[in-house]
Amino acid sequence: MAALIDIASWALILGGVAFSLIGAYGMIKLSDVYARMHAASLIDTLGIGLIFIGMMLQAGFTIVTVKLVLVLVFILFTSPVATHALARAAINEDVLPVVDTETERQMAASNKTKSSEFGT
C-alpha cells in the first residue's frame, strides 16, 4: 500500500514538474505576451496542482494536507484574476495580440476602457 502511494506520488510530482517545465519553456518560446499567458497558466494549474496532490498523498490526512488544499484553492482562485487583470492592462496600453486578421485585432481593441469610465 505504502509502495503504491509512493509510486503514485512519484508519478504525480514528476508530471507536475514536467508541466511546469513545458510552461516555463513556453514562456521563453512563444511569441507575444498573450500567447505566453497560456504557458503561464500551465504552471498555475496542472504544474502546481499535480505536485501538490502528490505531496498530499505523502502527507495523508493531516493538517499539512489541509493547508496544501488551501494553498491550491487560493492559487486556482486568484491566478485567472491576475491573468485577466494583466490582459486588461495590456489592452489599455495598446499592446494588442498578434493575430491573423484585422477583425480579430479590432475585437481585442474594442475592449479598451474609455477614460471616462475609468474611475467608477
Binding site: S20, G23, A24, M27, V33, R36, M37, A40, I43, D44, G47, I48, I75, S79, A82, T83, L86, A89
Partner: peptide
Amino acid sequence: ILAVNSFGTL
C-alpha cells in the same frame, strides 16, 4: 509582470 506572477507561483 507575467513572468513575476509565474515566478511567485514557482
